[in-house]
């Protein structure tokens, strides 16, 4: 009888551990898939990457800026 009681306890713990493990694993899968979908949609993708942000530059300044950037790129090793 005592052995039976111990067995029951372990079964309950096992159920909790497996359950939580599956929840965490599915959360990882969910966040990863969500990242893939969001990146493909391209929403809110612009981060501060030490480059002029194209979306906040005035439209007139953006056009003549283009060849200058190309030069800059050539100068880099």
């Amino acid at each position: 009888m005592p052995m039976q009681a111990e067995h029951e306890l372990h079964r309950r713990r096992w159920s909790r551990n497996v359950g939580l493990g599956l929840v965490l694993a599915s959360l990882v899968v969910l966040v990863f898939a969500l990242t893939v979908v969001k990146v493909r949609q391209g929403d809110l993708m612009e981060g501060y990457d030490y480059q002029p942000r194209a979306s906040v530059l005035p439209p007139a300044a953006a056009a003549p800026d283009a060849p200058a950037r190309a030069e800059e790129k050539e100068m880099q090793p």
Binding site: A5, E6, L9, R13, S15, R16, V18, G19, L20
Partner: peptide, 12 residues
């Protein structure tokens, strides 16, 4: 361990 049993996942 007698008395109230421990919780299973389904209890949560």
């Amino acid at each position: 361990y007698d008395g109230a049993p421990e919780a299973e996942f389904q209890d949560y």
